[in-house]
Every structure is written in structure tokens, then in C-alpha cells.
């Protein structure tokens, strides 16, 4: 990519300069004040996820009795979670169900009389339409930030493809595991150093390229059956596929370096709505509202300084219903 220069332009005499006061800039107080109606929705229907006393992200209130959706991988990284809705703190947070493919978790707090978000009828609004999401918050007051829908709705393939999370021994005639990533599905499934991979989903594998071939069209968060040899035993386990970015530190390119706080998981989503709200990495998990204050989706990743992704409302609704059912009748 051509790198934008970071240096500022030539020196101009101060008299020739005109500068807009910060209050009137897109993130300024005077402009944000125009979105008070949408901010009021964030006040009551967005949840603040706290880690101790620090804000860790946001959530979407979807029932009066305290069902909340947020981003799973971010929430699971919170050490001492509690939730604030409006001005009330809820110290006890229960995990009801998780969808790894979309990186979504359904939480429950002991509440009554909350105001759930109102879903927008469709995420298919024209590009250039206003959207509003959570900006930085205080303990009692939600702030709003505005932006626009900025690209086509589409899927975001997993960077580097979905992966098991194992490092294979180089220059080995067999697919022997050299290392297992601690955050991987392979670790959770119990794969170990020294295990030799034999087959994935019943398809024999003898080369790295063959593994890539089998995994290439599978979804992040889905399970694959891995057959391997340990000592003399042949065994099979189910391994959850993850994005490389979740497990390994992705190589930072120039665009990442100029973006600051990007989401750890920012790829491998079946469908996203893109917007340009100038928030930081904590924007994820919260609702994306339209000009009517209706929920157009849930922020799922800050990909870089110019691009944010949200799960579109149709998918969010379907996921919410599915996770609610799952919560009532655990598998």
C-alpha cells in the first residue's frame, strides 16, 4: 500500500489559516448534540461492560429482564466482569450461550424493567445513512458518536484462513505437532506436542497444503474432526477452528500501525455492515443505531482507523433467538 505521510504540510502563515473549533468537528459536542435522541437510546439500551472499574466494551440490551449480547472473545478476556445499564450497576453476570462463528455471547444480569433495543426492519440502508454508537462513557452518562454506513454488506473471510492452532515440525516426513497455541481449539481439544496428524474430517492429510485445502472453505468457530496418532494409538477429537489473528500476533502493516487500537478478532465474519464512526477499540459489543434510534446491528470489530464492522440486524436477531433457545434448553 502507498503509505500516507505522517508529516504535516508546509508551513503557512498563521493569518492564512482557518481552523474549526473542536466543538463543531464531527466528534465535537455541538455536532454530537444533534444526536441526542439516539444518545438517549444508548443511555437505556446499551450496556457498559466493566472490568473492575474500567470500561472494557459495550453490550446490547435485548430483554427487559437482563439478556445482553456482546462480543464473545472480548468478554471472555475480562477478568472481573460487571455490567452497567443506564445508571445501575449489576455485579453478577452469567454466560448463557456462545456462538463462536459470529463471536457473540448471550449474557444475563438479574434485572427487571430494562428497555431493550428496537430492531430496525433491515440493515439494507443506503450507504451514507447516519449511524450512531457508544463513545466514551462516564459512570452515569452514555455518550454518542456518529458516522455513516460506508461500504457494501459482505462477508469478511478469516485472515490467513481458519486454523487449528498448531505449529508443525519443519522438515518432518509426517505432520508432527511442534507446538500448540494456548488460545487455540487444538489446545482445548487436547492435542499435544508430538501428536501426528493423520486426517481431518476423514480426509487423509500428509502435507501442510492438504490441511489448508480441507480447512479453506470451513467457517471460523465451526468444529472439525481431527484424527491423529499419539504413540501407537490412533484417536479423534473435535477441534474448533479459529482465525489466525486470534491466536497469533498478526503481522502489523502500515495501516495497522497508524490505526492504534484495532480488534484482536476482526475477520472471519459471515456478514458485516461497515461504518466510519471514529471510535476506539472499545466500541465493539454495543448497538449500532440508525437515525430513528433503532438497532441496525451490533459492533463486532474495529478493523482499522477508517473501518468498523457490525453484525447486521437480520443476523443479530436470528442469533439472539437461537442463543435464547439454547440458553433455555442447554445442549
Amino acid at each position: 500500500m502507498i503509505r500516507l505521510l505522517v508529516a504535516l504540510g508546509g508551513v503557512t502563515s498563521l493569518a492564512a489559516q482557518q481552523s474549526l473549533e473542536s466543538a463543531y468537528r464531527t466528534t465535537g459536542t455541538a455536532v454530537v448534540a444533534a444526536f441526542e435522541a439516539q444518545r438517549a437510546v444508548l443511555q437505556t439500551s446499551s450496556a457498559v461492560i466493566l472490568d473492575g472499574r474500567k470500561e472494557a466494551g459495550y453490550g446490547v440490551v435485548i430483554s427487559p429482564v437482563g439478556h445482553i449480547l456482546t462480543k464473545a472473545s472480548e468478554f471472555l478476556g475480562v477478568k472481573t466482569p460487571s455490567i452497567t445499564v443506564d445508571r445501575t450497576g449489576f455485579p453478577a453476570v452469567k454466560i448463557l450461550a456462545i456462538d463462536s462463528e459470529w463471536d457473540l455471547v448471550l449474557l444475563k444480569i438479574e434485572a427487571a424493567g430494562l428497555i431493550p433495543v428496537v430492531y430496525a426492519p433491515t440493515s439494507g440502508v443506503p450507504q451514507g445513512s447516519w449511524v450512531v454508537a457508544n463513545g466514551a462513557t462516564t459512570r452515569t452518562h452514555r455518550r454518542a458518536l456518529a458516522g455513516i454506513v460506508s461500504a457494501k454488506i459482505r462477508d469478511i473471510p478469516a485472515t490467513g484462513g481458519p486454523a487449528l492452532g498448531v505449529v508443525l515440525k519443519a522438515k518432518s516426513k509426517v505432520l508432527e505437532i511442534e507446538d500448540v497455541n494456548p488460545k487455540s481449539g487444538a489446545k482445548k481439544a487436547g492435542l499435544q506436542k508430538g501428536d501426528v496428524l493423520l486426517a481431518i474430517e476423514g480426509k487423509a492429510v500428509t502435507k501442510v497444503e492438504e490441511i489448508a485445502e480441507v480447512l479453506k472453505d470451513r467457517k471460523v468457530g465451526s468444529m472439525v474432526k481431527v484424527t491423529f496418532r499419539r504413540g501407537k494409538d490412533e484417536q479423534s477429537v473435535d477441534v474448533r477452528l479459529a482465525t489466525r489473528g486470534e491466536m497469533f500476533t498478526e503481522l502489523m502493516n502500515n495501516n495497522d500501525l497508524m490505526s492504534g487500537d484495532v480488534s484482536k478478532r476482526r475477520s472471519g465474519f459471515p456478514r458485516v455492515l461497515q461504518h466510519d464512526i471514529p471510535g476506539n477499540g472499545k466500541i465493539v459489543g454495543g448497538p449500532l443505531l440508525d437515525i430513528d434510534g433503532r438497532c441496525l446491528g451490533m459492533n463486532i470489530a474495529r478493523a482499522n482507523r477508517a473501518e468498523n464492522f457490525a453484525i447486521p440486524v437480520e443476523d443479530l436477531r436470528a442469533l439472539a433467538e437461537r442463543l435464547m433457545k439454547q440458553a433455555v434448553q442447554p445442549e
Partner: peptide
Amino acid sequence: VVRCGRLVRIAGAT
């Protein structure tokens, strides 16, 4: 990708 904003500074050739 489309992004919306305001002209916040005008200074000579920038």
C-alpha cells in the same frame, strides 16, 4: 469506502 466529515482547517495548499 465512503467517509463523512467536515472541513476543519484551510491553510494555503492544504
